[in-house]
Every structure is written in C-alpha cells, then in structure tokens.
C-alpha cells in the first residue's frame, strides 16, 4: 500500500513537473495570437499552406541572438516557400529591459529587413507554454492531423561564433528530414544563450 502511494505521488509530481516545463518533442502546440511588429496579430492557423513552422524565441539585445539574426533570416528565405515559415517571438519583458520594447522590436525588424513576423509575448504566456528558457531557442513544428507537433527543440546550429569547422545545421537537417516524411534524426540540442528577462514582481 505504501509503495502504491509512493508511485502515485511520483506520478502526480512527475505530471506537475511536465506541466511547468513546457512542450516536449511529440507534444501538440496550442495556437496563439500575438501582436506582430506591424501591429497585426499572427497565429499559426494563418498559414494555411504551411507544412510546419520554425518558431524562434529571439530578442533585441542578447548578443548570441543577434549573432544568429542573419541565420534566422536565411532560414526563412530558404524554407518559407517550402512550407516552413519562421515565426519569431520576443520572450523578454520591456519593463525589465527597456531595449526589448515593442518600438525597439519594430526598429530592429525594419533595420534588418525581417521577412518574417516578430511577435510580442506580453506576460510570457506563449513563452511559458513552449517552455522557452533562453534566446535564441528554436522549436520546429510539423502540421499533422493531430495539430502542430513539436519535432525539434534547441539550437540553430553548433556554431555560435561562426568558426566551427564541424558545423552541423540542426534546424536545416530537421526540416530536410521532415520534408521527406521522416522524423528528424536529432530532436534535442543545447547551446549557450541569454536567460529570458522575466517580468519582475
């Protein structure tokens, strides 16, 4: 009996942890409606012809995220037309870091000519649903009958500095696999990034 109770407790606490940690590979993503830099709302469902999505949590100020800006643009140029558009979301709170404001996001999108939406996530609601913990943090999704399924979580590549001779393009590889009907060979990677600047208080 005592053991049974223990197992029950472990299951419950395991469930509680899973609830707070965000999506895992294989989970179905809840759609959202977030304000883009052009002030119009964007949802995953807006992309009727999409086969999937490259959701990138990125921001205005993190040096690592900035180092990846061009690579994120290149991903959208390469894959939006193939059915995998980039959706960028800024998880940071402008009250905590003023340079993360909506106006600064608009300025950045204009300056860097973003060809993809760059969305504001007030109160970190979508950030927490995904379980994004840093910038940049990528979630590759594929559209299925069940909904939009998480296929890959992690880094864009293993070359933050742009000098790795053994560079692996994780996101590109995941999409290559998905577009031929396979599951990505690598589904989870890690890289150093900036912590999310959560709202204080």
């Amino acid at each position: 009996m005592k053991n049974l109770f223990l197992i029950g407790f472990m299951l419950v606490s395991g469930f509680a942890i899973a609830q707070t940690e965000g999506y895992k590979v294989g989970d179905v993503v809840k759609d959202f409606a977030l304000k883009n830099v052009n002030s119009k709302n964007v949802s995953l469902a807006d992309y009727k012809d999409a086969k999937g999505y490259i959701v990138v949590f990125t921001c205005n100020t993190c040096p690592v995220a900035k180092g990846y800006q061009e690579r994120v643009s290149a991903l959208n140029s390469a894959y939006a037309s193939k059915g995998y558009p980039v959706i960028a979301i800024n998880p940071n709170d402008a009250g905590t870091v003023p340079d993360e404001s909506f106006e600064k996001m608009q300025a950045l999108a204009k300056e860097k000519n973003f060809s993809f939406p760059y969305l504001l996530d007030p109160n970190h609601i979508v950030t927490k649903q995904f379980g994004a913990l840093k910038t940049p943090h990528v979630f590759v999704l594929s559209k299925s009958e069940k909904g939009n399924v998480v296929e890959y979580i992690g880094a864009i590549d293993n070359d933050a500095e742009g000098e790795n001779p053994d560079k692996i393009n994780y996101v590109q590889n995941a999409i290559s696999d998905l577009s031929v009907g396979k599951k990505p060979a690598v589904t989870l990677t890690k890289a150093v990034g900036c912590s999310i600047k959560w709202k204080k208080g």
Partner: peptide, 20 residues
Amino acid sequence: EQDQQQYIERIDKKWSGAIP
C-alpha cells in the same frame, strides 16, 4: 571546451544553456 552540446549536459542535465 569546444562542444557546447556536450559540456552543457555534463555540467547539468537540466541546464538549457542559458546564463547566468
């Protein structure tokens, strides 16, 4: 260390790689 993928896990399995 060269390989972030490897050293992040080795320091702590739960670490996302975010600093501090």
